[in-house]
Amino acid sequence: MSTLTAPLPLPEATPRSPHHLTPEQIQFFDDNGYLVLRQWIPPALLARLRAAGDAWIDAGMGAEGSDPGRDDFVFAERPGGRVMFRVNYLHNKEQPASLEMLGSPQVLGVAESMCGPNFVPTYESMVFKQEGDGEAIPWHQDAVHPRGYRIFNFDLYLDSSRAGAGALRVLPRSQARRHDVCAIATEHGWDHPDAIDVEMEPGDVLLHDVMVVHGSARTLGNALRRTIYYEFRAAEEILEDGPWDREWIDRRLRLVPLGLARHRAAFPDAEQFDWQVAPEFRPATSGDEAAELKIAHVVHMRGSYCSAGDALRALKA
């Protein structure tokens, strides 16, 4: 049974495109808190995103303290030294592939299936483990909310992620409530009886509920593993639960027509997404594309983390 407490538009018995989810897929997600879509991103777009991933890492490693946007490149102190592990606000980092992906039917069809036509792209980042950096990501829940609507992350894997080499661990069916993740770690470590390893290949997509408990164990000598994360919520959910307002929704929704245009320009012969947002939410563009590409988050919905340090690393966005 779904853990949602308020109704969303029912999925169509026959999805209106190959990029929309089936009722069975949505039910699996609602029951388990995650869903894997194998080879979901077309090879040409995937190749552009892999190149963009390299460029984002290079930009972060070369950024100076006074450079605009320097704080979007997030570093951590490891036993072996300082390493970068995250890039926030991808769309203004001079790599059009991130907007091409956002405007693709493979992304927006899923967003519409899960959130209804008034979906809002709320976050965009790339999180990665550099070669040899096998630091753990502790058990956590991304954001805890009243569960009247689906809030989910669209996770595109740019590299292989295998069991024993840093693959994501998930506790299926854990998304229905807030958990004490410290207690989970203390009692079970990484060997919770319900835990599964989600193995992924380049081009695979993991959809995960922001309340499903997940993390990844420490490994040694792992290869580079990069994942692009886009979070989506319904505009109705944001207005009901916060933490943002109507103006912020409007500003974030301006990313959608930019993405649609970039996808159409890059792949004119590919299928394009038919955006059916309600008139009251359709944004009026400002004409200042540079300003529209980065809409910052002043506040965040609280998640469940074992320490303030874990939360800070997750919320530096």
Rank of each mutant, 00 (worst) to 15 (best):
M1Q: 11
S2H: 05
L4Y: 01
T5G: 05
A6G: 06
P9C: 00
L10R: 13
E12C: 14
P15D: 09
R16H: 07
R16Y: 03
T22V: 11
Q25M: 13
I26P: 01
F28G: 02
F28D: 06
Y34G: 05
Y34L: 13
L49W: 12
D54G: 00
D58E: 15
G62K: 15
G69K: 03
F73C: 06
G80N: 11
R82K: 03
V83K: 11
M84K: 00
Y89Q: 09
N92R: 05
N92I: 00
E94H: 14
Q95A: 07
Q95H: 02
A97Q: 02
M101D: 00
S113V: 05
N118D: 15
P121C: 12
P121Y: 10
E124W: 01
M126V: 13
Q130N: 11
E135A: 14
A136F: 07
P138T: 05
R147L: 08
G148A: 09
Y149K: 02
N153R: 10
D155G: 06
L156P: 02
L158W: 04
D159Y: 12
S160R: 13
G164V: 09
G166A: 08
L168Y: 10
L168I: 15
R169C: 11
L171N: 04
R173W: 00
Q175N: 12
R177I: 03
R178P: 00
H179Q: 09
V181A: 08
A185S: 15
H188F: 15
D194M: 07
I196C: 09
E199Q: 12
E201D: 12
P202G: 07
P202S: 08
L207F: 03
H208I: 03
V213G: 04
A217C: 05
L224M: 14
L224Q: 15
R225L: 08
F232S: 04
A235P: 00
I238Q: 04
L239G: 04
E240W: 05
R246M: 12
R246H: 14
W248Y: 09
W248Q: 14
R252T: 13
L253Q: 12
R254C: 09
G259A: 07
A261H: 08
A261L: 08
R262V: 06
H263S: 04
H263A: 06
A266P: 07
F267E: 03
A270C: 01
Q272N: 14
S286A: 10
D288Y: 08
D288A: 14
I295H: 08
V298H: 13
H300Q: 14
M301A: 12
R302H: 13
C306K: 13
S307Q: 12
A314T: 01
L315M: 09
K316V: 01
